[in-house]
Design a protein around this nucleic acid. Structure first.
Length: 588
RNA sequence: GGUCUGGUAGUUCAGUUGGUUAGAAUAUCGGCCUGUCACGCCGAGGGUCGCGAGUUCGAGUCUCGUCCAGACCGCCA
């Protein structure tokens, strides 16, 4: 049988032991180095680079042919493996080269718009437009290989723990709670629409009612909200649910999964139980529900200590708090001015920054020397546990705003002091989230997590009297200040679920219309259950040590939710619109 | 919806106080070169300074508008 054998080996596998073998390779021309009498070609595929040699003296014809090649041409070559006289220890195949005696041009290539190299000269926009070329580059390819491995190990681990991967529908039902839905018109049901799932939440709960016990799914979710570096309109979750569990069971299971992933993929071992911190403490000490605990630098609240102190900024403030930056007393006036500018940026919005330099000789220099004497400042540095050489940075103002600004300042200082090492990982469970959040605009409560989250038993009575302080059986896994996953123990009682909808301002009819199927299911023996969903893209970017999730997604969308490669979204034909019974208000 | 930053050669960028022919690196093309691997040397081509208007004797540079991109705020149960 005649067939073409495109390759006997990949471009990454030949070694000294292969010398003298006759081999055939196929790949892309990475680089041509023509030295006149001889030509070197780097041939690249997914697996690596192999150097080809063409010698004018022995094969003038091939050397002539090779002159017509360009970057990214696809070629197939055959030849003998030889030991190099000059070895290259930077690549795995650097000890050998191929003495080419036959080559076939499989496909020429236009000149790529940017260089296909680790350090490309291409900008983000161009790389996205030609993403198929960008994906040829090692760093991007490696990210996707890492993502593959992560998904594989998630399945491996959860399978061993008896979880069943089940697909849930993508064309579902729109609900007003939560994020904006992506909407899909139904041709067969004029005037009616599907929604794409923001998460398979209700389906996984129904699977628990169905007795599936342990479910997971690596699944696309969709939210029609504005994008960020760590937010895409379609993203992937590791969605999980378990029956007959309480909070600590879920935490144990997924702490186990997280440890497994770190061990097999990063060779990082956590020989401790992940710490747990209440939402309340997270806000008090770090000003955030997703604190970066790779470093300490906890907030110190000063309001009680200060009393009426005569410094108007502090006296008028609802909150006065600060952090101690180790060894930063040597900051110059200019450094401090820059920090002040930083916290006054509109996104952060603090008014000003009070500093106290605790000099190495034990003296003080502060921006509030006029108001506080040495005795007062001594009391401060004691409260902060500061040592000589440290710098106190203090903000004052409205409580949540100031805590938020202080959080940003803490992260900035952590960055400057080198505490935010990408190779160091600090996991943290944040627990005891509030059940409800007051929505100023709508003048009602909405669920902080989602309306299926159960309140803590001990707080149940408060639901009637003071719903705002009721805590939920809800938890987040935070690693290095990134919210990697979150979940809750759900309500499995239709009466309590009814009550929740009522609290959230649903009328009986609305609740029935939108979630009647769920409450109905709860009437048929729903087991206690709870679960978690991990942001798969964020997990992958954390493992890859990069800040943007775009580089761990094969074909991501840009800031405006566009795919610049396929140019979507795009208008559709009038016939399509007619068929869907859709009239556009205005067409550009 | 808002704030900020940017848009100049294929690409990444520089471009001073508004002033002569808009530069560098890299990529590309041509020539030379037998051990390169960031090859080297010599040479060449390559520009709607995002788009539109305004100010000015004169705009890459200043003003306004607009489009695009990125970061962030709002938003993201």
């Amino acid at each position: 049988i005649a067939f073409i054998m495109y390759r006997s080996h990949t471009c990454g596998e030949l070694r000294l032991a292969d010398v003298n073998k006759e081999v055939t390779l196929s790949g892309w021309v990475q680089k041509i180095r023509n030295l006149g009498g001889m030509t070197f070609i780097d041939l690249r595929d997914r697996y690596g680079i192999t150097q080809l040699v063409l010698d004018v003296e022995s094969r003038k014809d091939l050397s002539e042919e090779a002159r017509k090649l360009g970057r990214e041409f696809v070629v197939q070559i055959s030849g003998k493996v030889a030991e190099r006289s000059n070895k290259n220890n930077k690549i795995a195949t650097g000890d050998v080269e191929i003495l080419v005696d036959k080559f076939v041009l499989l496909n020429p290539s236009e000149l790529p718009p940017f260089t296909i190299e680790d350090e490309t000269d291409g900008g983000d926009e161009l790389r996205m437009k030609y993403r198929y070329l960008d994906l040829r580059r090692n760093p991007v390819r490696r990210n996707l290989e890492l993502r593959h491995k992560l998904g594989f190990e998630v399945r491996n681990y959860l399978n061993q723990q008896n979880f069943i991967e089940t697909e849930t529908p993508v064309l579902i039902k729109s609900t007003p709670e939560g994020a904006r839905d992506f909407i899909v018109p139904s041709r067969m049901n004029p005037g009616e629409f599907y929604a794409l799932p923001q998460s398979p939440q209700v389906f996984k709960q129904l699977l628990m009612v169905a007795g599936f016990d342990r479910y997971f799914q690596i699944v696309k979710c969709f939210r029609d909200e504005d994008l960020r570096a760590d937010r895409q309109p379609e993203f992937t979750q590791i969605d999980c649910e378990m029956a007959f569990v309480e909070q600590q069971d879920v935490l144990n299971t997924f702490e186990g999964m997280t440890k497994h992933l770190f061990k097999v993929i990063k060779d990082v071992e956590f020989d401790f139980k992940f710490p747990q911190m209440s939402f309340e403490d997270a806000i008090r000490y770090y000003g955030s529900d997703k604190p970066d605990v790779r470093f300490d630098m906890k907030f110190v609240e000063m309001k009680d200590m200060l009393g009426e102190c005569g410094f108007k900024v502090f006296d008028d403030a609802e909150y006065v708090g600060g952090i101690c930056a180790e060894g930063c007393a040597s900051f110059t006036r200019k450094d401090l001015d820059k920090l002040t500018d930083y916290i006054r940026k509109p996104q952060i919005g603090a008014q000003g920054l009070v500093y106290v330099k605790y000099n190495t000789d034990g003296s003080f220099k502060s921006s509030v020397d006029k108001f506080f004497d040495e005795a007062a400042l001594t009391q401060w540095v004691e409260a902060y546990g500061a040592k000589p050489g440290d710098l106190l940075l203090i903000l004052a103002g409205q409580k949540t705003k100031t805590q938020n600004a202080l959080c940003q300042l803490r992260l900035e200082m952590g960055e400057r002091l080198g505490f935010r090492d990408k190779n160091k990982f600090a996991p943290l469970w944040v627990v005891d989230f509030p059940l409800l959040e007051w929505d100023e605009e709508a003048e009602r409560y909405h669920a902080m997590h989602h309306p299926f989250t159960s309140p803590k038993k001990e707080d149940l009575a408060l639901l009637e009297t003071d719903p705002g302080v009721v805590r939920a059986n809800a938890y987040d896994l935070v690693i290095n200040g990134v919210e990697i996953g979150g979940g809750s123990i759900r309500i499995h009682d239709d009466e309590l679920q009814h009550k929740m909808f009522q609290l959230l301002g649903f009328t009986e009819e609305e609740a029935e219309n939108q979630f009647g199927f769920l409450m109905n299911a709860f009437k048929y023996g729903a087991p206690p259950h709870g679960g978690v969903a991990f942001g798969f893209d964020r997990l992958a970017s954390l493992f890859a040590g990069i800040d943007s999730i775009r580089d761990v997604i094969a074909f991501p969308k840009n800031n405006s939710g566009r795919d610049v490669m396929i140019d979507s979204p795009s208008p559709i034909a009038k016939e399509q619109l007619d068929e869907l019974n859709i009239a556009l208000k205005k067409i550009k």
